[in-house]
Write a protein that binds this DNA or RNA. Structure first.
Length: 433
RNA sequence: UCCUCGGUAGCUCAAUGGUAGAGCAUUCGGCUGUUAACCGAAGGGUUGCAGGUUCGAGUCCUGCCCGAGGAGCCA
C-alpha cells in the first residue's frame, strides 16, 4: 500500500493509501469514529464505521489516545464535511504505540499557560501553531541564504568560541576551554571583515550568545543572526542591501507560506505593504518624531524599547534609521566625515511596533583611527592585533550588518514574543528542555 | 538587578477568615457525520515551601522558591 503525505491527499482521491502519523483528536458518534491524524505535513480526518471494519479494528481505534502513533489504511475521498476537504475511509489501522490513559499526552486541545507550554516545549512543537511558525522560520532562513547566494556572496562562518576580551566580557558567556577560558560569540562581524577581504562579499549565519539579563519580549540569550559584510561598500550600499533583503524575505514568505500565515491569524496585508522603497530617516529626525510623540528621549542617547515601538508604529513598512551618535555605537563604527560625532551606521525597525531587526554600518578602515578607538574604549590591544592587521594590509572601505532571525520571524508571524520563534528558546530563566 | 502580578485537581481557572468547586483531560455508558462534538456518571487535592497571627487560614503577616509582565541592560 503506498504511503502518502497528508498534504498531498487531494492528489490521491479514490485511491487506497496508507498515512502514518499521530492521533490529533478523536471524535465519536455512536457507531462512527472520526480520528484526526496528523503526520507533520497536515491533518486529515479518518472515518471508521462500525459496519465496515472488524470489531477488533473498531475497538482499536476507539481506544486510541491523543498523540498515539499509528498507520491507517483506507480510501481517500473528497468530502465537504471533512476539515481539509478530503478524508480517509479507514479499513485497517496499525497502532505503533498507544499512549496509556493513566499517563496521557499533557497538551490537550484546550488552553494552557505559557509556563506549562514552555516546560513541554518538546511536545508543544507538535501543535498546528508551532508547526506553522517552524515553517515560516525555515522559509525565512532559506530566503536569506538564497538572497545572498544569488548575489555572489560566499558563506564564511565565524567561530562560536572566541578568545578572551574581544569586546569586553560583561555580556559574554564564559566557558572552560581546556586550561584556558573562552567566550561564546556575540557576533561574527569581526571575522566577517577578515572574510570580506578574502572573498569580497561574505555572510555568516549562526547562533549568537548574549549574557545580558534582559527580560523582554524581544530578547533571547541564544539567537541566530545572519551577517553580511561587503568590501568597498559604504553606508548607502549597505542600507540598500538591507532593504532589498527584507523585502525579498517578506515577499518569499507571502509567496510560499500563505497557509502558515493563515494558521497564525497573521494579517497578510500588513506584510504586503512592505515593498520597496522603505522610508529612511536620520537619528536627528527620529529624535524629533519621538519628542513630538511624548518620549523623554534626549539627543545623544540610544532608543529604549518604548522608543523603538513608537518609532516603528509611525510607518506601515520597515523604517531605516541612520547616523546615530557615535557614542552609543560600537568602537569600530566609521564616523561621518561631515559630522564626526555621528556614526555611519544603520538600524532597521520593523513596523507594527516590532522594533529593531537589523543593525550595522560602515566600519573604520583607517589603522590609526581604529587603534585610537580601541585605546579609548580600554580594550586590550593584543587581542585586536589580528583585527588591526586587516587595516595594515590592503585596507578598504567596507560595511555590513546583522539581522536577528528570531525578531524577523516574530514580526512576520505577528507573534508577541520571540520565545515562540525558535524551537528551544534560551532565556534568562529558561534553559530547559 | 529593580518594580508589578501570580502559584488551588494532569491542564485552565473559581472559592466574604468558616464544609475546597467548575470546565477540559482520564475511565465507564449513550448517540451512524462529528468539527476544541454533544449528553449522563465516576475517580481525581500536602491550595509552591517554611514559619507566624487566629477558635478557625487557599484567603491575613514574614521569609524563601518558581514563573509571568514590564524596566534597566543590550552593536
Amino acid at each position: 500500500m503506498p504511503v502518502i503525505e497528508i498534504r498531498q491527499a487531494s492528489e490521491h482521491a479514490g485511491e487506497e493509501v496508507t498515512v502514518q502519523g499521530w492521533l490529533y483528536n478523536l471524535r465519536e458518534s455512536g457507531k462512527l469514529l472520526f480520528p484526526l491524524i496528523r503526520d507533520g505535513t497536515g491533518i486529515m480526518q479518518g472515518v471508521v464505521s462500525k459496519g465496515a471494519v472488524s470489531p477488533e479494528t473498531f475497538e482499536r481505534v476507539r481506544d486510541l489516545t491523543q498523540e498515539s502513533s499509528l498507520r491507517a489504511t483506507g480510501r481517500v475521498r473528497a468530502d465537504a464535511r471533512a476539515p481539509g476537504g478530503f478524508e480517509l475511509d479507514i479499513s485497517e489501522v496499525d497502532v505503533i504505540q498507544r499512549i496509556p490513559p493513566d499517563r496521557p499526552y499533557p497538551i490537550t486541545p484546550k488552553e494552557h499557560g505559557i509556563e506549562f507550554l514552555m516546560d513541554h516545549r518538546h511536545l508543544w512543537l507538535r501543535s498546528s501553531r508551532q508547526r506553522a511558525i517552524l515553517g515560516v522560520r525555515h522559509e525565512i532562513i532559506k530566503a536569506c541564504r538564497d538572497f545572498f547566494d544569488d548575489r555572489g556572496f560566499t558563506l564564511v562562518d565565524a567561530p562560536i568560541f572566541t578568545p578572551a576580551a574581544c569586546e569586553g566580557t560583561t555580556t559574554l558567556f564564559e566557558v572552560k576551554y581546556f586550561d584556558d577560558k573562552a567566550y561564546l560569540t556575540q557576533s561574527g562581524q569581526l571575522y566577517n571583515e577578515a572574510a570580506a577581504a578574502a572573498v569580497g562579499k561574505t555572510y555568516c549565519f549562526g547562533p549568537t550568545f548574549r549574557a545580558e539579563k534582559s527580560k523582554t519580549r524581544r530578547h533571547l540569550t541564544e539567537f541566530w543572526m545572519i551577517e553580511p559584510e561587503v568590501a568597498f561598500a559604504h553606508l548607502d550600499d549597505i542600507c540598500a542591501l538591507a532593504e532589498e533583503l527584507v523585502a525579498f524575505v517578506v515577499g518569499r514568505v507571502l509567496d510560499r507560506r500563505r497557509a502558515e500565515l493563515k494558521t497564525l491569524g497573521r494579517d497578510a496585508s500588513k506584510l504586503e505593504a512592505c515593498i520597496l522603497p522603505f522610508p529612511r530617516i536620520t537619528y536627528d529626525e527620529a529624535v524629533k518624531i519621538l519628542q513630538t510623540k511624548g518620549s523623554g528621549i534626549q539627543w545623544g542617547s540610544d532608543f529604549g524599547g518604548t522608543d523603538e515601538t513608537i518609532l516603528s508604529q509611525q510607518f506601515n513598512k520597515p523604517v531605516v534609521v541612520t547616523h546615530y551618535p557615535g557614542q552609543v555605537k560600537a568602537f569600530y563604527m566609521a564616523p561621518d566625515p561631515q559630522r564626526p560625532e555621528l556614526a555611519l551606521c544603520v538600524d532597521m525597525l520593523a513596523p507594527e511596533g516590532y522594533g529593531e531587526i537589523i543593525g550595522g554600518g560602515e566600519r573604520i578602515a583607517d589603522y590609526d583611527l581604529l587603534l585610537r578607538r580601541i585605546e579609548e574604549n580600554r580594550l586590550p590591544r593584543e587581542a585586536f592585533e589580528w583585527y588591526l592587521d586587516l587595516r595594515r594590509y590592503g585596507t578598504v572601505p567596507h560595511a555590513g550588518f546583522g539581522m536577528g532571525i528570531e525578531r524577523v520571524v516574530a514580526w512576520i508571524c505577528g507573534l508577541d514574543h520571540v520565545r515562540e520563534t525558535i524551537p528551544f528558546p534560551r532565556m534568562l530563566y529558561r534553559l530547559k528542555p
